[in-house]
Amino acid sequence: MKTISIEATPKTPTITFDSGKGFLEIKGRSIPENALEFYKPLVEWVEKYADKPQTSTNVNIQLEYFNTSSSKCILDVFKKLEAIKKGGSNVLINWYYEEDDEDMLEAGEDYQAIVNVPFKMVQVV
């Protein structure tokens, strides 16, 4: 599987997915009216990757804003990662938040409580 990258738009984030390195990054803002349409390919790629994952998978989530429509899709991606971890590989989700952004930290903690994957909360100063 090749490296996949999607460029950011005013309402959607940059997505980088390098299956050879076991690296996924979602960065920027995710506020599309219809997030399902935007995230569908990513969910499918991660699902395909789950068939033959690397021994460790690193995931960076560095979002400035995300809407509730995206929140469910991000959870869908995390659920796929949970399945990879369940299959015996290491998965780490690095959740970035800006120093004063308590809402973003809380959002990360909410996912951490729902998904059975290790999270690392990373403060960006």
Partner: peptide
């Protein structure tokens, strides 16, 4: 978040 099925247009 954990249970809701999304409506067609993407509102949760």
């Amino acid at each position: 978040l954990n249970n809701a099925e999304m409506s067609i247009k993407g509102g949760v």
